[in-house]
Every structure is written in structure tokens, then in C-alpha cells.
Design a protein around this nucleic acid. Sequence first.
DNA 1: AAACGAGGTTCTTATATAGGAACGTTGTTC
DNA 2: GAACAACGTTCCTATATAAGAACCTCGTTT
Lengths: 253, 253
Amino acid sequence: MVSSVLKAIQILETLGNNENLGVTELSRNLEFPKSSVHSILETLASEGLIEKVPETSKYHLGLKLIELGNRAQLNLDICKISHPYLKNLNKLTDETVHLTVLDNDEVLYVDCIESEQWLRTYSVIGLRAPLYCTSVGKAVLANLDYSHALNIIREKGLQRITENTITDEKIMIKELETIRNKGYAIDNMEHEDQLVCVGAAIRNAKGEAFASISVSGPAARHNISNIDELGESVKEATREISWKLGYRSGSIN
Amino acid sequence: MVSSVLKAIQILETLGNNENLGVTELSRNLEFPKSSVHSILETLASEGLIEKVPETSKYHLGLKLIELGNRAQLNLDICKISHPYLKNLNKLTDETVHLTVLDNDEVLYVDCIESEQWLRTYSVIGLRAPLYCTSVGKAVLANLDYSHALNIIREKGLQRITENTITDEKIMIKELETIRNKGYAIDNMEHEDQLVCVGAAIRNAKGEAFASISVSGPAARHNISNIDELGESVKEATREISWKLGYRSGSIN
DNA sequence: AAACGAGGTTCTTATATAGGAACGTTGTTC
DNA sequence: GAACAACGTTCCTATATAAGAACCTCGTTT
């Protein structure tokens, strides 16, 4: 383990969360000595991972990171394979479509195609969300080992975010069963008021649910009657992607 | 300057260009000792910037980089401000629209909205291209200091890429003058066969042309008659963006 | 306008690390 | 199946660096 590299990464993360910080602010935030921060910033800036605003001597993330991030996205198998299916779902539904992967017991949004409608879900690539209150998250959660899922639920807790958030463990366990039976998860304004999503999990060759896709739109457009139809489309897409990834379902599923 | 951080960055870049490299391959490529590569990889992997494929002990770029890259993109003022204009141009033209910034005497594609048509320009965020043979590049080049532009042209050279690439310095200098007069640059299959683009430069508050926007599509759809119309739309968008960035043109331009 | 304060930068040395070399481990060849 | 080859991993120490402290610079206060 290389401490300076570790520090550099933490600096990048901090700059990602708070744009335009100076040496002292970073040093205080991270509790690194100013001089260390300074020399690391100098190095990062020399390669373009961050940029120094000369007038203020403050730093923000740089162009090279955009380049690397997109390279990472292109190299990520799941993105490559899923993108056409996202496009297709977007065409079919005219709603915003997301691809997420499980990372650190959260979902990380790694691809997105926005709806063309005026009232639409916003693009959120690179953001994270909890598992228990999103369709993408619940779809994955429902397909993890029971003990693992329970662990996550208990460790992270079921914080109330909206009126509809499921905050009771027993109800959540039933919900996960429903999701397994249906093959897709519905988020009925559990994460954001007026936002309804349907998500289904993607499995890798080992059968692990490690990613998921969702379609999301305003509650006004998604009532009980059409949400299941959407759910079936999403489920079908994930089934095909999982197949391409080498998953061969043993059961009738 | 911190050598280990510098090495880490070079490793990330190398992994961006060649996915799935092992310790030895990286060590050979970069001429770093294996042990150094090993400990840096370990550190990068611990934070998720890269991922190790356990079966092969090879590494590729990780999820955290997608996150950081998108954070960088969101924080980049020019992206924030330009995105609505890109959307608008895309709607207006139904062609693929790109935003690039000048970086290291090249253009770096930092945002893109793809056409919905079957035959379309592909999305290329994170890629780079030379200045002399792209509309986005020429638009910027035309608005740099004459000596600076000439320097770039001479240092990088005018390599022939397609039949239409401008490879003669004198012709290029005239072309740049035309671009300044018109306010937009046309790439008539100079970078890729059958691909036609129109681009215009964006200026910051200091008046520096540091970014540009283009609309691009197949030559079949863009003849002499409609290309100038597109050019005017692109020019108008860049004019408004430059204004928002604080640029107050002194001349009639 | 002098003194202060808050930030960025430079200096120096005890300390952690880079990197050469030796060691494991895996899979390939004969 | 033994010997080899190729790669990943671990070890050790000369060396580069982290980090504390001093220093500089600029803006603000009295």
C-alpha cells in the first residue's frame, strides 16, 4: 500500500464532492499535513487530473479524469453489453433508463439515457443510492443471499426518505419476496416524491445479481395498470443481458 | 512532485488504453520495477479506481473512476453551461452534437448528444482529436494567436488522414481566415470519410477560444446548401455560451 | 500604515518507500 | 511427470519523501 497514492485518491474524492478547495481546506478536511497536500496537488495537476485556478489557487477535478472515467465506462463489459438494451427500453417507453452496478452495498449509476419528455427523470451517472429504497437497489437486494441482504438492511438501516419509504424490516423482507416472484422491483415514490421506477437485476456468469436496469418517470404517467407492463419489458432486457454475460438460469425463471 | 502518484497516474492511463494488463505487462510498458507497480496497483484497487480480475490477476479501470469522471464533468463549468445548448442543437438538427475543449493542443470531447437517426456519428466522450482536421479543432485553431496556431500546425504537422485532409500549410492558413470570417469551421470529410461537421469556438471571459461545439453527420445529408445554415445555428449557440462565460465581444463579431 | 491573520510555499530530516533481487506459484513443454 | 518458463508476490535497504515548522504573500483590520 502506497500512502501518497492513497492520499491522492482521497484528495480526488474530496475535490469531487466540494469543488474549488485550496491547500489548507483540503488539509483540514482530510487531516493531512499541508505540505503533503501541496505536493500531491502539484503532481495531480501536472498530469491534468485536477486543475488549479491561478487566480484563487484553488483546485477542481480536471479534464484527464473525464477522459479516464469515460475510458473506464467503455471498458466496463456490463456497459458495453447493456447500452443497446437501454436504448431500446428508452425508445419503447420514452422514459429515462438507468444502468447501475452494485458497489459497496449501494447502487452506482453507470449509464443513463434520458427521456425526451419535458417532465423527466434527471441524468445521474456517477451518483450512488441506497439499495432499500430504489427499484434498481431492491431488484439487486432481492437476489442476494438472504443473510447478506439482511446484513445490509440491518447495517445500513431503513431510513425514511419519503412518505412511502419502506422502513419496516418485515415488510421489506416480504417486498423482496414479491420482487423475486415478479422478477422486477417497483419503487413507488420510496426514494423521491412523485418518482416511480421499475427495475430488474442482471446476473453474471456465476449467477450473482451485481447490476440492474430501471425505467423511471413521474408518478402521473405510471399507475398500477401500466407499471407491470414496463416491469416485464425491463425484466426481459435484463434476462437477455444476463444471458450474454454467460448466465444460464437453472430454473424456469 | 510525488513520484509514486505520478506512477499511479501513468498506470491508470496505460490501463485506459489497454484493458486487462497484469503486473509484468505494466512494468514492461512503463519501465517501472514490478514491485512498485504491484504496490501501486494494490493501492489503486483498494479504493476502486481499478479492479483486479481474480481469475487472471489482471487489472482494468474501476467504478470509482466512472464516478470521479462524471463528477469532473458535472463540475466543469463549460459542460454545465453548454449542455442545454447542445440539447437544443440536437433537437434542431437531429444530428450528433459534440462539445470539446482545447487540451494539450488537441481537442478533448467532453460532452455529446447523439442523433437518433440510424446513420449517425458515434459518441466519443473522452477521446481526443487533432486540431487541423476537425471542425471543432479548426474553429479553435482559427481563433488562437497567429503565432501560437502556426506553432501547433508546424509541430504537429498536417498529416493526411483522408482524401480531403488539408495538408498544405498555406491552404490551412487561408482556411483559418475563412473560418474567422464566417464564424464557423466546416470539416468536409477531412478526418473521416463520409463524415461532415460544422463547428464554432467558444470564448471565455478573457476572450480565449478554449472550447468548441460541432454538429456532425453523414455527407449524404449535408451538402453545400444546408451546411451554412447549420453553421449559423452552431455559431449562434457558441455566441450565447461565450456571453454566459463572461465574454463581451469588442468587435461587430 | 502597521500589525495581524489566513492562506500558499519552501525547507529539512526522521521515516516510509522504491526498486532490485530472491521467492512462490501456476501452467506449459518435452 | 519433471523441468522449465512466466508471472505474481514478498523481502530488504539505499533513497526519496511525508510532514512538521518556518517562511512568504496578500488581504483585512484598527
